[in-house]
Nucleic acid binder design. Structure first.
Length: 555
RNA sequence: GCCCGGAUGGUGUAGCUUGGAAUCACAGAAGCCUGCGGAGCUUCAAACCCGGGUUCGAAUCCCGGUCUGGGCGCCA
């Protein structure tokens, strides 16, 4: 049998459907994910058209399809005919298939894809509120890469505008040699500059002058803000590295001004039919674009002719599409309108439009995260706490510190990734620190168990021959393994990363049950089972690596 | 006010695209270590925001509410 097993199963379902039709039944809906067996034929529509009891129809159909060689049982249950495939006949081929390196990957034409994620303003250390962005962005990048695309990630650095000018003003006072991590040290200077901006007129004037210089393209001013931002980013990058989510490239907004690319965009936008002018400031009139809100004027220059943040964002996206087939932005839900406007502007100048993945904000149990109210939780602190906890849980083991970090960071990433991005998220430290149940350590632990069996086996993997009938928990594990390619495909197509941790939990759980029921070493079915262990470990490993979680051999 | 999301056991979640027998975990109750690693396994108890509609069948689709998050720019 050279056919792929997953296709073989599809084929069996198809054949059975045809068989049922040839016996004079109407087409029956199929449930590919039934509570029992491999698929179910739903007999209610037939009950209606044939005016018969669905249980009788289901019984009758069950008898007909039992004849099929690939079917081991077909039983009625409340009008559902639950069909089980004979896994004994296909499991050996299936093991071969999973062992291959392309199992689970897409059969696609690879595209060059740029994923922009995080892009937090470089004004201070990361909050937990922003943590969803790098974690989702990085994992989506890994997912698309696993599927077969060429993926790069990029962080867009907002180093112009008022915040950047304020930062540059503030950190002029900074002297090297503080003990704190640099972003935690610099944020104090930013805060004090920010206060002066509000309360001290001369500071305010200085900062606004600086802004003017920046936007008008003054090389010296641009260099100053860029350097200031880079200094802050130095510390922020350390956090991203700890998280395992550092971007491949950093693109500075200041460079868009320095190279004159923004001015080209302004000229192009002025040619749009939607363009109007008001007191010297230019805007696109979006009344006909069904844009909500009172103000439908989308300004792209100030009255002094200089650019705005959004104008630069448009220029940035033009640059993206010069190099990439697809561009995906990972954005907080506060950017929805902004992103829509960006799309319209790009359309007006005949540029491709980026795809977007929005996530809801992270809140704290008592309400919003707010710097002003002092309700801030730093990513660095959470990474430290969760790593410390993992440290306590570990026994005496080699490389304990490294392992604790892998477990801690893994648990954090998993905790965030397992929930749909668009769902509201309340960050609960207690829950994130719970390393049992539906968590990264659970999957990591199953992986380590599998690794342990393979270590103890000490021989080369044999051919996966089956000597005795498969146990229920082996079939269950095989079924779960057979769904992996479909899970990956769905996750890629919907840009929905949460399917991946959900699957990891199912697979780990099925593996643990197999582990309980089926001795591997020394069993008469050792040859098959050791291969099944190897396959489970392989998929668990690939799954965790998409999530950016290490899969250690021991823990 | 207008625009865009969300609502599922006590808590947190999956399922919604493509209608079919409600997922999983935490917390609670009761069990399982002379077994390849107990961060494990088994059992019990517990949920689809409210009204209508379509359908043999609705958590899922349609209409109308309620509550809740986000947005409404010469800011970034």
């Amino acid at each position: 049998m050279s056919q792929r097993v997953v296709d073989k199963i599809d084929g069996i379902v198809h054949d059975i459907s045809n068989l049922v039709k040839s016996k004079g039944f109407p087409e029956l809906p199929v449930d590919r994910n039934p509570p029992f067996g491999d698929f179910a034929l739903i007999c209610f529509p037939a009950a209606k058209s044939l005016k018969r009891n669905p249980n009788d129809i289901s019984e009758e159909i069950g008898k007909e399809i039992q004849e099929n060689d690939w079917i081991i049982s077909a039983k009625n249950e409340n009008g559902y005919c639950n069909v089980s495939i004979d896994w004994n006949k296909i499991c050996v081929d299936f093991i071969d298939e999973i062992s291959k390196s392309n199992y689970g990957k897409g059969d696609i034409e690879p595209k060059n894809i740029l994923i922009e994620h995080t892009s937090a303003n470089p004004t201070g250390p990361f909050h937990m509120g922003r943590a969803r962005n790098p974690i989702i962005g990085d994992s989506i990048a890994r997912l698309l890469g696993y599927y077969g695309h060429n993926v790069s990630t990029e962080y867009y650095v907002n180093d112009t505008g008022r915040q950047a000018a304020t930062l540059a003003h503030g950190i002029a006072e900074y002297r090297e040699g503080e003990e704190k991590k640099i972003d935690h040290a610099l944020v104090e200077y930013y805060r004090s500059a920010s206060d002066s901006l509000k309360n001290d007129e001369s500071v305010r004037n200085q900062i606004y002058e600086k802004m003017e210089l920046i936007e008008s393209g003054n090389k010296e001013a641009l260099n100053e803000v860029k350097t200031a931002a880079e200094k802050m980013l130095e510390g922020m990058k350390v956090s991203l590295r700890e998280l395992g989510a550092e971007a491949d490239n950093y693109y500075h907004e200041s460079d868009l001004i320095a190279t004159g690319k923004v001015n080209i965009v302004i000229d192009q936008l002025k040619k749009s039919d939607l363009c109007s002018e008001e007191k010297g400031a230019y805007y696109l009139d979006l009344e006909k674009e069904n844009i909500a809100g009172r103000n439908q004027k989308f300004f792209f220059t100030r009255d002094n002719g200089l650019s705005l943040y959004t104008t630069r964002d448009i220029a940035y996206h033009i640059e993206k599409f010069k190099k990439y087939d697809r561009a995906l932005n990972i954005l907080g839900e506060d950017h929805k309108l902004q992103s829509k406007l960006l799309g319209i502007a790009l359309r007006e100048i005949n540029c491709k439009i980026p795809e977007t993945l929005f996530y809801s904000f992270v809140n704290l149990p008592g309400g919003k995260m707010s710097t002003r109210a002092g309700r801030v939780v730093y990513l660095d602190d959470i990474m430290q706490q969760i790593t410390d906890l993992a440290m306590q849980k570990l026994g005496e083991i080699e490389d304990k510190e490294k392992l604790a970090k892998q477990i801690g960071i893994g648990a954090l990433r998993y905790n965030i990734l397992k929930v749909q991005a668009e769902k509201g998220f309340t960050f609960n430290i207690e829950e994130a620190l719970n390393l049992q149940g539906d968590s990264a350590p659970f999957a990591m632990y199953s992986h380590a168990r599998a690794a342990s069996i393979l270590r103890n086996f000490e021989k080369k993997l044999p051919k996966p021959d089956v000597e005795s009938e498969l146990e229920e928990s082996e079939i269950r594990l095989l079924r779960t393994l057979s769904k992996w390619p479909e899970i990956v495909r769905k996750s890629v197509e919907n840009l929905a990363i949460h399917y991946i941790p959900n699957y990891a939990h199912t697979l780990a759980s099925d593996f643990n049950q197999f582990y309980r029921d089926c001795p591997v070493l020394g069993d008469q079915n050792e040859g098959f089972r050791i291969n099944l262990v190897m396959c489970s470990k392989k998929i668990l490993n690939e799954n965790l690596s998409i999530l950016g979680i290490e899969a250690p051999e021991r823990m």
